[in-house]
Design a protein around this nucleic acid. Structure first.
Lengths: 252, 252
DNA sequence: TAGATACAACTGGTCCAACCACCGGGCCAC
DNA sequence: GTGGCCCGGTGGTTGGACCAGTTGTATCTA
């Protein structure tokens, strides 16, 4: 086991690079809905690469609902507020606006929705989970309380706990929503990491630790009535004042 | 205006065709998570097309979180329950399982989540909409009551009403979620079309019409407390018994 | 002159063949 | 057991060619 948690490197392909650049321009409003992108051939020239790579990039953007590609007629920029897919969120949240400002309002809206979905998910999970599923959640929560010395394992197990809840709802839709929102969280995990590290050093006085204890108790008692409050508590660090502190630590 | 609402034809590109076929196989479990797809060259041979088209198709699947493409190592099938994006839902709902059976449970889970999101959205909208936004919703609702003779216009305006509510929440996340869920609804619109047509013929006795009347009143009174109940009523046709009737009319 | 027609320029769609970059496994020397 | 090396296979990228659809325009026709 390495002393440091090395991050696996990922080489961006040319088409991803191109997609990222064009996506940014569209999200920042350089290209307005209804306008046409330069032709594939022009883009290839501009990016100094092959047309094939440009095409792959455009296909990516089309999948996100950012553009519409029509043979013979060029590539039209769509209004992403009307046509954008949910998976656009993660890009939206990591793309500063034209003034280089970070979109706090968008992030806040995601937190808001995440909380709503989490509460609903937990409500359904408490109705639908089988004994062995409850047992698994209990086991994960107990494990979490033993991982206070390993921040990496702590955060990984944290993800598994949340996932178990969303899976417990026995809802494909919620499960996929979890995937998307978890991906967003991962992009933002750096400030949370610092937050958790500070918390864990406080040992028993830590609010985070006491939160997991409380969660474990509620799950053991199958106390469905207490779930809503518990989750609201979990989202407490996302309250406006703490929100600003977390945003200040973002690293992209 | 044409007598019939013609559907714009869209020619499927080869890469879309390939993506659809491979997606189906993955969703049906022909390829299990961890397995590798045939190489691009093999797929090109099998589909009788060029490798370029296969590559575009695979990029599409990667964007959905269905596969992971790694240079030199082939294309690995991922577990879409863990890695799939929300945008996968629309494909999941229109892909029968290996026995050719339609996945009712998945559709039900979508309806369930849609209701949750709609309620939350409306709650927020009632808190955040400005007078002109309320006025717009009122106008759309009033317009809806005049469109009882034009089913196409009726359904289009219906979409605008829902969109206005989701936009009223002033939440980018909810707005994009609306786009994705609306897209799913469009895939399923045929049974709803029949349902609405039958309702509209009943005139004032129609439950649907009375629903919009009630909605209009609630919006005019800014009666936020009544919203939850109203939306639950709207999702009433999705109750188990009617759900089966609607499913029976699906046409894909 | 108004409308229909034909054309030409442009755009995306597909294909081919070649080469580069990377992975994985097998082999070898240390 | 470790690291170095090679080799076959896989994805990544390239340039160029041609097909197919769109669009605006110049032209022809009534």
């Amino acid at each position: 086991m390495a002393k440091v948690a090395f991050q696996p490197i990922r080489k961006e392909s040319i088409s991803e690079e191109i997609a990222a650049q064009v996506r940014k321009e569209i999200l920042q409003g350089t290209y307005l809905p209804g306008e046409k992108l330069p032709s594939e051939r022009e883009l290839a020239l501009a990016f100094g690469c092959n047309r094939t790579s440009v095409r792959e990039a455009l296909v990516r953007l089309q999948e996100l609902g950012l553009v519409e590609i029509r043979q013979g007629a060029g590539v039209e920029v769509l209004d992403w507020r009307r046509a954008g897919e949910v998976d656009l969120l993660v890009h939206l949240l990591t793309t500063p606006d034209a003034q280089g400002k970070f979109d706090r309002k968008a992030l806040w809206s995601v937190i808001e929705v995440a909380q709503t979905l989490y509460i609903r998910s937990a409500e359904l999970a408490f109705q639908r989970m089988k004994p062995e599923e409850f047992a698994r959640v209990e086991a994960l929560l107990e494990k979490q309380l033993t991982l206070t010395n390993d921040i990496d394992a702590f955060m990984a197990n944290d993800g598994e706990i949340h996932r178990a809840i969303f899976e417990g709802a026995h809802s494909v839709a919620l499960q996929l929503l979890y995937n998307t929102f978890w991906q967003i969280f991962c992009e933002y995990s750096s400030p949370f990491r610092i937050f958790f590290e500070a918390e864990l050093k406080q040992g028993d006085k830590s609010k985070v630790i006491s939160y997991y204890r409380k969660a474990l108790e509620i799950v053991k008692k199958r106390d469905a009535a207490a779930v809503r409050g518990l989750i609201s508590e979990m989202f407490q660090p996302a309250s406006p004042e703490l929100f600003e502190k977390l945003v200040a630590r973002l690293t992209f």
